[in-house]
Amino acid sequence: MTAVGDELPSLTVHVTRKDLVRYAGAALDFNPIHWNEPFAKEVGLPNVIAHGMLTMALAGRVLTDWTGDPGNILEYYVRFTRPVVVPNDDKGATVELSGKVREINEDGTAKVDITAKFEGKTVLGKAQAVLRLP
């Protein structure tokens, strides 16, 4: 039985420049701030940053790893509060993702809070999802 306070399986992902290029092609998001270092710096970023939607997708894996079937996810929301800066090396940026059950509702759904951290700081704000429980 799912209970309030239950932790979802956490996930640690190393995001490299290669991963960004691969995601850009898969998601058809070619904004140069995600692959062009001079451009990213010119627009005031510290360096190339990961797609916010990639971080949202990685955090989504915490949900689908837990529920198994993505069809159980009814709502999914994130606010992008801080960029994930990706250096030009083999290790990339380390993103830590976790989740916790906040509420169990009478209609058989649960509200889950998601945390995504980079360099110890959260990069997604108010990240939450509503899932149908089995």
């Binding site: 627009v43 916010g52 939607m53 949202m56 993505p70 069809g71 996810i73 009814l74 709502e75 999914y76 929301y77 994130v78 606010r79 992008f80």
Partner: peptide
């Protein structure tokens, strides 16, 4: 567009 950033995003699923 050059000054635009993504603030938030949500999905509401009615079916898979």
């Amino acid at each position: 567009y050059s000054r635009m950033v993504h603030g938030d995003q949500s999905f509401t699923y009615h079916r898979q």
